[in-house]
């Protein structure tokens, strides 16, 4: 069994997230208490967990705390990746950044994205049963007509999310329908992440990262932007570009397979990434951990493997 980790992105937070883990798992509790001290907010109170300005920090703290529980119990991973924000959790798991650095950083990243979104509001839609070539061609055609729309998330060969201005996404949707693509599903987003509409956020993040010190990751962490492992020297640049360039989670999954991973464990809220892994590579074994119940399922499966 060769393990890879997937760290969740935004959008799958749930009510009461982490309360059961905090009550039962000492190493989880240690990380959350430390995170609460760093942020000067008690991350065990529902009001803080639901605060949109702390949403990214909550997900990273939750994911890092879960990783702290799981890491000693699992074989060492061959590689890791995460979706968007999940890359930050992965970089902490790979000892490139510490908690005290990352939590204020992702709070600021949230603010930069909100500011950029307020300046240039955006929307996103998932296009199903399409292809990369078709999405790229239609986005290009719409931009030639003067409206902004771009491929934003390459999730599978046939499921690609587009992001842009409301008019841009609407015009692209019309063109998809005209081309026989029936399903263009609007997502609940008010910013067009991973598109040039995030340029202002990207510039703010570049300034913010100037003084942040990254260590060389101890495990290969595949970047959504380059589909290659983050390297110490180019890390800042890659994270800055991540906000304005599409995520290639499809290629990251292929890279993890190429590294020999046959079992992927999603760490963080929800199971969106394990579902994508399963769709891209049906032979992969997948599991997700975001509660005591799912943690115990993984523990049970490990006992069966090791006898």
């Amino acid at each position: 069994m060769t393990i890879g980790y997937l760290f969740s992105g935004q959008g799958q937070q749930f009510a009461g997230m982490g309360a059961d883990l905090y009550a039962q798992e000492a190493s989880y509790r240690d990380v959350i208490d430390q995170a609460s001290d760093i942020l000067h907010h008690d991350l065990t109170t529902p009001a803080v967990v639901e605060d949109p300005q702390l949403a990214q920090a909550n997900i990273v703290a939750f994911s890092v705390a879960l990783h702290r529980v799981l890491a000693p119990e699992l074989p060492a991973p061959a590689a890791m990746t995460g979706l968007s924000l999940g890359e930050y959790s992965a970089l902490v798991a790979a000892d490139s950044l510490d908690l005290a650095t990352i939590l204020p950083l992702v709070v600021d990243r949230t603010a930069y994205m909100n500011e950029a979104g307020a300046q240039r509001p955006g929307t996103m839609s998932a296009v199903l049963k399409t292809s990369a070539a078709q999405v790229e061609a239609i986005c290009h055609q719409v931009r030639e007509q003067g409206e902004l729309v771009y491929p934003a998330n390459y999730n599978t060969a046939r499921q690609i999310v587009i992001g842009g201005s409301a008019a841009g996404v609407a015009q692209a949707t019309e063109r998809f329908h005209a081309a026989g693509i029936k399903r263009v599903v609007p997502l609940n987003m008010t910013v067009a992440s991973h598109t040039p509409l995030m340029a202002a956020a990207s510039r703010s993040l570049a300034r913010r990262l100037q003084d942040v010190v990254f260590e060389e990751p101890s495990v290969a962490v595949y970047s959504n932007t380059t589909a290659r492992p983050f390297a110490q020297l180019s890390l800042r640049d890659t994270l800055v570009k991540q906000l304005v360039q599409p995520t290639r989670f499809d290629l990251c999954l292929t890279a993890l397979c190429d590294q020999g991973c046959d079992t992927l464990i999603e760490i963080g809220p929800g199971d969106a990434l394990s579902k994508l892994a399963h769709k891209n590579h049906p032979d992969l074994a997948t599991a997700h951990v975001d509660s005591v119940a799912t943690l115990n399922q993984v523990r049970h499966a490990l006992e069966e493997v090791h006898g």
């Binding site: 998932a126 199903l128 049963k129 499921q159 399903r183 599903v185 997502l187 579902k275 769709k279």
Partner: peptide, 9 residues
């Protein structure tokens, strides 16, 4: 709804 559409597809 995205999951449901994937099933429908």
């Amino acid at each position: 709804s995205l999951d449901v559409f994937e099933i429908v597809d």
